[in-house]
Design a protein around this nucleic acid. Sequence first.
DNA 1: TTTATTGTTCGCAAATGTACGAACAATATT
DNA 2: AATATTGTTCGTACATTTGCGAACAATAAA
Lengths: 109, 109
Amino acid sequence: MEKVKVKMSVADQELVSRFAKAMAHPTRIEILVFLASQDSCFFGDIHDEFSIAKSTMSQHLKELRDAGLIKGEIETPKVRYCIHKENWETAQRLFANLFDLFDGNEVIC
Amino acid sequence: MEKVKVKMSVADQELVSRFAKAMAHPTRIEILVFLASQDSCFFGDIHDEFSIAKSTMSQHLKELRDAGLIKGEIETPKVRYCIHKENWETAQRLFANLFDLFDGNEVIC
DNA sequence: TTTATTGTTCGCAAATGTACGAACAATATT
DNA sequence: AATATTGTTCGTACATTTGCGAACAATAAA
Protein backbone atom coordinates (compact mmCIF):
# COMPACT_ATOMS: atom_id res chain seq x y z
CA MET A 1 0.00 0.00 0.00
CA GLU A 2 1.37 3.33 -1.11
CA LYS A 3 1.89 5.96 1.57
CA VAL A 4 1.24 9.64 0.93
CA LYS A 5 4.39 11.63 1.54
CA VAL A 6 3.90 14.94 3.30
CA LYS A 7 6.67 17.50 3.09
CA MET A 8 7.98 18.41 6.52
CA SER A 9 8.80 22.02 7.31
CA VAL A 10 11.85 22.86 9.37
CA ALA A 11 9.45 23.82 12.16
CA ASP A 12 7.85 20.38 11.99
CA GLN A 13 11.25 18.74 12.08
CA GLU A 14 12.20 20.71 15.18
CA LEU A 15 8.92 19.76 16.78
CA VAL A 16 9.54 16.08 16.09
CA SER A 17 12.98 16.29 17.65
CA ARG A 18 11.46 18.05 20.65
CA PHE A 19 8.91 15.28 21.11
CA ALA A 20 11.57 12.64 20.55
CA LYS A 21 13.76 14.22 23.20
CA ALA A 22 10.95 13.97 25.74
CA MET A 23 10.48 10.32 24.76
CA ALA A 24 14.19 9.53 24.88
CA HIS A 25 14.08 7.76 28.23
CA PRO A 26 12.63 4.31 29.06
CA THR A 27 10.90 5.58 32.19
CA ARG A 28 9.21 8.40 30.31
CA ILE A 29 7.94 5.96 27.67
CA GLU A 30 6.59 3.78 30.48
CA ILE A 31 4.85 6.81 31.95
CA LEU A 32 3.27 7.64 28.60
CA VAL A 33 2.12 4.05 28.10
CA PHE A 34 0.65 4.07 31.59
CA LEU A 35 -1.14 7.39 31.09
CA ALA A 36 -2.35 6.43 27.64
CA SER A 37 -4.11 3.39 29.13
CA GLN A 38 -5.79 5.27 31.98
CA ASP A 39 -8.52 7.81 32.45
CA SER A 40 -7.65 8.63 36.06
CA CYS A 41 -4.04 9.38 36.81
CA PHE A 42 -2.90 11.12 39.97
CA PHE A 43 0.77 11.72 40.61
CA GLY A 44 0.73 9.19 43.44
CA ASP A 45 -0.84 6.49 41.27
CA ILE A 46 1.88 6.94 38.70
CA HIS A 47 4.64 7.11 41.29
CA ASP A 48 3.45 3.86 42.88
CA GLU A 49 4.01 2.04 39.59
CA PHE A 50 7.71 2.89 39.55
CA SER A 51 10.68 2.37 41.84
CA ILE A 52 12.10 5.86 41.69
CA ALA A 53 12.16 8.83 44.03
CA LYS A 54 9.16 11.10 43.73
CA SER A 55 11.45 14.01 42.94
CA THR A 56 12.75 12.05 39.96
CA MET A 57 9.23 11.18 38.89
CA SER A 58 8.18 14.82 39.20
CA GLN A 59 11.12 15.78 37.00
CA HIS A 60 10.19 13.23 34.31
CA LEU A 61 6.59 14.46 34.36
CA LYS A 62 7.82 18.02 34.01
CA GLU A 63 9.79 17.13 30.92
CA LEU A 64 6.78 15.46 29.35
CA ARG A 65 4.67 18.48 30.29
CA ASP A 66 7.21 20.95 28.88
CA ALA A 67 7.26 19.01 25.62
CA GLY A 68 3.46 19.19 25.57
CA LEU A 69 2.78 15.46 25.60
CA ILE A 70 0.90 15.49 28.91
CA LYS A 71 -1.12 17.88 31.02
CA GLY A 72 -1.22 18.33 34.80
CA GLU A 73 -4.12 19.74 36.76
CA ILE A 74 -4.26 20.43 40.48
CA GLU A 75 -7.08 18.77 42.40
CA THR A 76 -5.93 19.77 45.82
CA PRO A 77 -4.08 18.18 47.40
CA LYS A 78 -3.42 15.91 44.43
CA VAL A 79 -2.33 16.50 40.86
CA ARG A 80 -4.06 14.76 38.03
CA TYR A 81 -2.03 13.96 34.94
CA CYS A 82 -3.33 13.09 31.49
CA ILE A 83 -2.20 12.77 27.93
CA HIS A 84 -2.43 16.13 26.13
CA LYS A 85 -4.84 15.06 23.40
CA GLU A 86 -4.19 17.78 20.82
CA ASN A 87 -0.41 17.68 21.08
CA TRP A 88 -0.44 13.89 21.26
CA GLU A 89 -2.23 13.81 17.92
CA THR A 90 0.19 16.35 16.50
CA ALA A 91 3.11 14.18 17.56
CA GLN A 92 1.38 11.13 16.14
CA ARG A 93 0.92 12.87 12.80
CA LEU A 94 4.44 14.28 12.63
CA PHE A 95 6.14 10.97 13.41
CA ALA A 96 3.92 9.27 10.85
CA ASN A 97 4.83 11.90 8.25
CA LEU A 98 8.51 11.44 8.96
CA PHE A 99 8.45 7.67 8.67
CA ASP A 100 6.31 7.86 5.55
CA LEU A 101 8.95 9.95 3.83
CA PHE A 102 10.96 6.83 3.19
CA ASP A 103 8.26 4.37 2.18
CA GLY A 104 8.83 2.96 -1.27
CA ASN A 105 12.38 4.19 -1.78
CA GLU A 106 14.88 1.75 -3.16
CA VAL A 107 17.75 1.12 -0.81
CA ILE A 108 21.19 1.05 -2.38
CA CYS A 109 23.39 0.17 0.56
CA MET B 1 -11.99 5.84 12.78
CA GLU B 2 -11.18 3.38 15.51
CA LYS B 3 -7.53 2.44 15.96
CA VAL B 4 -6.45 -1.05 16.95
CA LYS B 5 -4.51 -0.94 20.20
CA VAL B 6 -1.48 -3.21 20.32
CA LYS B 7 -0.04 -4.04 23.72
CA MET B 8 3.56 -2.93 24.00
CA SER B 9 6.07 -5.18 25.74
CA VAL B 10 8.73 -3.68 27.97
CA ALA B 11 11.25 -4.59 25.27
CA ASP B 12 9.22 -2.65 22.72
CA GLN B 13 9.05 0.33 25.06
CA GLU B 14 12.81 0.28 25.51
CA LEU B 15 13.27 0.06 21.77
CA VAL B 16 11.02 3.08 21.24
CA SER B 17 12.99 5.10 23.77
CA ARG B 18 16.20 4.03 22.03
CA PHE B 19 14.91 5.22 18.67
CA ALA B 20 13.57 8.40 20.24
CA LYS B 21 16.95 9.12 21.77
CA ALA B 22 18.59 8.90 18.36
CA MET B 23 15.94 11.24 17.00
CA ALA B 24 16.21 13.69 19.89
CA HIS B 25 18.27 16.26 17.99
CA PRO B 26 17.14 18.64 15.23
CA THR B 27 20.19 17.94 13.10
CA ARG B 28 19.64 14.19 13.27
CA ILE B 29 16.02 14.62 12.22
CA GLU B 30 17.22 16.74 9.31
CA ILE B 31 19.67 14.01 8.36
CA LEU B 32 16.92 11.39 8.45
CA VAL B 33 14.62 13.56 6.34
CA PHE B 34 17.44 14.10 3.86
CA LEU B 35 18.31 10.39 3.66
CA ALA B 36 14.67 9.37 3.46
CA SER B 37 14.26 11.50 0.34
CA GLN B 38 17.38 10.21 -1.43
CA ASP B 39 18.57 7.04 -3.05
CA SER B 40 22.21 8.11 -3.26
CA CYS B 41 23.78 9.50 -0.15
CA PHE B 42 27.53 9.76 0.39
CA PHE B 43 28.91 11.23 3.59
CA GLY B 44 30.16 14.27 1.70
CA ASP B 45 26.78 14.93 0.11
CA ILE B 46 25.17 14.93 3.53
CA HIS B 47 27.90 17.02 5.09
CA ASP B 48 27.57 19.65 2.36
CA GLU B 49 23.94 20.19 3.34
CA PHE B 50 24.84 21.25 6.87
CA SER B 51 27.01 23.88 8.50
CA ILE B 52 28.75 21.69 11.03
CA ALA B 53 32.22 20.17 11.31
CA LYS B 54 32.60 16.83 9.60
CA SER B 55 33.62 15.26 12.90
CA THR B 56 30.29 16.38 14.35
CA MET B 57 28.43 15.03 11.33
CA SER B 58 30.27 11.73 11.61
CA GLN B 59 29.24 11.54 15.25
CA HIS B 60 25.56 12.18 14.47
CA LEU B 61 25.66 9.52 11.76
CA LYS B 62 27.24 7.10 14.21
CA GLU B 63 24.41 7.63 16.67
CA LEU B 64 21.80 7.01 14.00
CA ARG B 65 23.73 3.92 12.92
CA ASP B 66 24.06 2.61 16.48
CA ALA B 67 20.33 3.05 16.97
CA GLY B 68 19.80 1.08 13.76
CA LEU B 69 17.96 3.78 11.84
CA ILE B 70 20.55 4.05 9.07
CA LYS B 71 23.23 1.93 7.43
CA GLY B 72 26.69 2.89 6.21
CA GLU B 73 28.64 1.11 3.51
CA ILE B 74 32.18 1.81 2.37
CA GLU B 75 32.64 2.53 -1.35
CA THR B 76 36.26 3.47 -1.16
CA PRO B 77 37.16 6.19 -0.67
CA LYS B 78 33.59 7.26 0.11
CA VAL B 79 30.95 6.01 2.50
CA ARG B 80 27.39 5.59 1.35
CA TYR B 81 24.63 6.08 3.90
CA CYS B 82 21.02 4.91 3.65
CA ILE B 83 17.95 4.42 5.75
CA HIS B 84 17.94 0.97 7.35
CA LYS B 85 14.71 -0.27 5.82
CA GLU B 86 13.84 -3.08 8.26
CA ASN B 87 14.59 -1.11 11.42
CA TRP B 88 12.95 1.98 9.99
CA GLU B 89 9.74 0.01 9.56
CA THR B 90 10.08 -1.40 13.06
CA ALA B 91 10.43 2.11 14.46
CA GLN B 92 7.48 3.25 12.36
CA ARG B 93 5.33 0.44 13.73
CA LEU B 94 6.40 0.90 17.37
CA PHE B 95 5.77 4.65 17.39
CA ALA B 96 2.40 4.06 15.73
CA ASN B 97 1.52 1.44 18.35
CA LEU B 98 2.48 3.80 21.14
CA PHE B 99 0.44 6.71 19.84
CA ASP B 100 -2.51 4.43 19.12
CA LEU B 101 -2.61 3.38 22.77
CA PHE B 102 -4.35 6.62 23.60
CA ASP B 103 -6.80 6.97 20.74
CA GLY B 104 -10.38 7.14 21.95
CA ASN B 105 -9.70 7.66 25.63
CA GLU B 106 -11.67 10.30 27.41
CA VAL B 107 -9.50 13.03 28.83
CA ILE B 108 -10.39 14.18 32.33
CA CYS B 109 -7.90 16.95 32.90
C1' DT C 1 57.35 7.10 -2.22
C1' DT C 2 55.01 11.15 -1.72
C1' DT C 3 50.62 13.48 -2.02
C1' DA C 4 45.41 13.78 -2.20
C1' DT C 5 40.93 12.30 -1.00
C1' DT C 6 37.46 10.77 2.16
C1' DG C 7 35.82 9.88 6.71
C1' DT C 8 36.61 8.27 11.44
C1' DT C 9 38.53 8.64 15.94
C1' DC C 10 40.73 11.23 19.77
C1' DG C 11 41.00 14.69 23.23
C1' DC C 12 39.15 18.42 25.09
C1' DA C 13 35.63 21.94 26.99
C1' DA C 14 31.10 23.28 27.86
C1' DA C 15 26.39 22.16 28.35
C1' DT C 16 22.71 19.10 29.50
C1' DG C 17 20.56 15.03 31.67
C1' DT C 18 19.74 11.87 35.60
C1' DA C 19 18.83 10.70 40.29
C1' DC C 20 18.56 11.46 45.03
C1' DG C 21 17.25 13.46 49.69
C1' DA C 22 16.12 17.63 51.97
C1' DA C 23 13.53 21.60 52.12
C1' DC C 24 9.52 23.88 50.80
C1' DA C 25 4.48 25.25 49.44
C1' DA C 26 -0.46 24.67 49.56
C1' DT C 27 -4.23 22.96 51.47
C1' DA C 28 -6.91 20.02 54.77
C1' DT C 29 -7.40 17.99 59.46
C1' DT C 30 -7.06 17.81 64.40
C1' DA D 1 -1.93 26.73 66.00
C1' DA D 2 0.09 22.31 65.15
C1' DT D 3 0.07 18.23 62.12
C1' DA D 4 -0.65 15.48 57.96
C1' DT D 5 -1.00 14.91 52.96
C1' DT D 6 0.52 15.61 48.31
C1' DG D 7 3.86 17.16 45.01
C1' DT D 8 7.29 20.55 43.50
C1' DT D 9 11.65 22.79 43.79
C1' DC D 10 16.48 23.13 45.38
C1' DG D 11 21.13 21.67 45.79
C1' DT D 12 24.34 18.34 44.75
C1' DA D 13 26.98 14.64 42.44
C1' DC D 14 27.91 12.11 38.55
C1' DA D 15 27.21 10.64 33.71
C1' DT D 16 26.21 11.70 29.02
C1' DT D 17 25.86 14.69 25.02
C1' DT D 18 27.48 18.09 21.91
C1' DG D 19 30.79 20.37 19.06
C1' DC D 20 35.25 21.45 17.51
C1' DG D 21 40.02 20.92 15.51
C1' DA D 22 43.82 17.86 15.23
C1' DA D 23 45.48 13.51 14.35
C1' DC D 24 44.84 9.32 12.14
C1' DA D 25 43.62 5.31 8.69
C1' DA D 26 42.76 3.51 4.16
C1' DT D 27 43.01 3.73 -0.39
C1' DA D 28 44.08 6.02 -4.93
C1' DA D 29 46.96 8.98 -7.86
C1' DA D 30 51.19 11.34 -9.21
